[in-house]
Simulated assay, not measured.
Amino acid sequence: MSPSGNHSPRYSRIIGTGSHLPGARVTNQDLVQRLAADCIETSDEWIVERTGIRARHFAAPHESSSDLALPAAHAALEAAGISAQDLDLIIVATSTPDMVFPSTACLLQNKLGVHGCPAFDVQAVCSGFIYALSVADSMIKSGAASKALVVGAEVFSRILDFKDRTTCVLFGDGAGAVVLAASDEPGVLATELHADARHVDILCTPGTVAGGQVQGTPFLRMDGQAVFKLAVGVLEKVARSVLEKAQLTDADIDWLIPHQANIRIMQGTAKKLKMDLSKLIATVHDHGNTSAASVPLALDEAVRSGRIQRGQTVMLEGVGGGFTWGAALLKY
């Protein structure tokens, strides 16, 4: 019951999904050749064996995160059957904003041709979409919003060191979006967010701008083994926690969409949840790690391919720099 006791409970539900990938598809072999020019050895086999990644997409020099977010947003709005003018909340999850400020969400709002509704960014790196979805869900449930656009958009190619084969082969660019709407039927069943900054150094881009110059390094740095060990453990724990909140079990999950970082982490999480790998939605092979965009990209692909159907239960999970992690359990 609402506080007044006169109304039915208010929920949020995904009513549309969308995604967008920039035009330049970069294969492992393309990167092998690029690295070879600097006498850095790698191979398609080495990359696939360790990550499952075969290709990724890179934005053109003139494309920003808001540029990628715009077509993803349009696709989600079209799928939802509403116009941008119907939105009363815009949240963009990104670690690669167009500029220091204003937010990428404000820039996206302007490109959508709407004005007035709150628009802001959420920065939780690869967990960003889960964080943003949780915030939008809370705002809709509280009555602060009724129709929200939630986008994950990244141009990680801008912060990659192409002399470091352990990181530059992992990431790609893209955007994914959902439209959440108020509903009297449960859609977002449960969410949970976490962070532990004791692990800030294992995945970070520590540079900053001061006095017109970059201080520190503007390139992504990662301790892959440390991230791997942390990720599998926290993803299982947070998944079980949201299941408990929703009073469901492993067996109730129809589809698992984890952050698309590494196929071994993803498969390890599925196995810990006793899920058949056929229920694992994986796009990492063709998208690479698109950070905050990875979960909504995979969700949209699974919806549009017909795998995810209305009424099914979907587990979304993210884990990333911060160190952040979280999960959202949906009745699609």
Rank of each mutant, 00 (worst) to 15 (best):
residue 194 H to Y: 14
residue 306 G to Q: 04
residue 198 R to N: 05
residue 26 V to T: 10
residue 136 A to W: 08
residue 203 L to V: 07
residue 18 G to S: 02
residue 295 V to D: 02
residue 65 S to M: 05
residue 137 D to R: 03
residue 231 A to Q: 05
residue 272 K to R: 15
residue 89 L to S: 09
residue 81 G to V: 04
residue 136 A to M: 08
residue 115 H to S: 15
residue 21 L to N: 01
residue 42 T to F: 14
residue 130 I to Y: 02
residue 196 D to W: 04
residue 36 A to W: 08
residue 77 L to E: 03
residue 286 D to Y: 13
residue 56 R to G: 00
residue 3 P to Y: 09
residue 83 S to R: 12
residue 304 R to M: 08
residue 246 A to R: 00
residue 154 E to L: 04
residue 19 S to W: 00
residue 310 R to V: 10
residue 37 A to Y: 11
residue 70 L to Q: 09
residue 61 P to I: 08
residue 106 C to I: 06
residue 63 E to Q: 14
residue 88 D to G: 08
residue 247 Q to G: 08
residue 324 T to F: 10
residue 53 I to E: 01
residue 263 I to G: 05
residue 43 S to A: 10
residue 139 M to C: 13
residue 262 N to F: 02
residue 2 S to Y: 14
residue 74 H to V: 12
residue 278 S to H: 01
residue 65 S to E: 10
residue 171 F to D: 00
residue 136 A to S: 10
residue 79 A to Y: 09
residue 170 L to A: 04
residue 100 V to L: 15
residue 207 G to V: 00
residue 133 L to E: 06
residue 297 L to F: 15
residue 10 R to G: 01
residue 329 L to I: 01
residue 320 G to W: 02
residue 123 Q to Y: 12
residue 181 A to W: 03
residue 20 H to M: 03
residue 211 G to F: 07
residue 116 G to L: 13
residue 319 V to T: 07
residue 87 L to E: 13
residue 90 I to T: 01
residue 318 G to D: 03
residue 183 S to A: 14
residue 235 L to M: 14
residue 113 G to L: 10
residue 268 G to F: 08
residue 212 G to N: 09
residue 315 M to K: 00
residue 126 C to T: 03
residue 99 M to W: 12
residue 210 A to M: 10
residue 326 G to H: 06
residue 140 I to Y: 11
residue 174 G to F: 04
residue 106 C to P: 05
residue 65 S to Q: 05
residue 74 H to T: 07
residue 37 A to H: 15
residue 115 H to K: 02
residue 143 G to L: 08
residue 95 S to K: 00
residue 233 G to S: 04
residue 327 A to S: 13
residue 314 V to D: 07
residue 87 L to V: 11
residue 70 L to I: 00
residue 136 A to T: 03
residue 113 G to D: 08
residue 250 D to R: 07
residue 94 T to Q: 09
residue 286 D to H: 13
residue 295 V to G: 04
